[in-house]
Amino acid sequence: MTTLEVFDGPLALLVELTKKHEINILKIRIVKIIDDFVTYVEEARKINLFITTEFLSMATYLLLLKSKLLLPKTEEQEKETISEINELFDTIKKYEMLKEAAQEMKTYASLQSKMHFRNEPDLSGKQSDEIPFDELDSFVLTEKLLEIIDRNRRREEIVNIARDRFNLDDKIKELAEIFKNTPYSEYSVLAEGKERGEAVTVFFALLIMAKRELLNLMQKENFGPIYIKANIDEKNWKE
């Protein structure tokens, strides 16, 4: 066995194997199927074919089932094992039916895709933003709400980036340069002609510099002009 067919999953392989071993005697049939399944997995691993964990877990289960079959057991255990095998065949059969139905649906879709409507509706599988009114329910609403929250969150992030245009550290350096030449100033003068964001940055820069005792701030009354006196004697201007 050098060429191995690739199967979507363990059940797809089992469907093939049940077709191959059409023996009436249940026990012989299942043992043959299990042996073939395990051989397939071993062969596939030898040639480095990608084998998913699902195949391995199915192989493990099948080997357990086989050991149950071969070991001596009580009548009740025998019954249990038989019903387990029947259940397995049932699962395989159901899967096979759905798999066949899926193939038939494919022909339906390909026929439908050849018939065109006026004003070609979107059949490409892409969802349109418009939701038909009768398809609205709480889940659609929840989904839309989460979308909006998510979108707003992203918008906020963009605002944060924009604010960074006026870097606080840069502003402090800039102000320090100004104060070297003119130690006395007023906030309204420094902020004059600046846009809102920059004026705020200047204000913060002044507060931080005052905290570091690089300058003194004075205000006579609430909302009154803010006077600034720089401490030029201070040694750490370079900061």
Binding site: G9, P10, L11, T52, E54, S57, T91, Y95, L98
Partner: peptide, 8 residues
Amino acid sequence: DAIRGNVD
């Protein structure tokens, strides 16, 4: 998943 043989 169960119908597909416990395939995710």
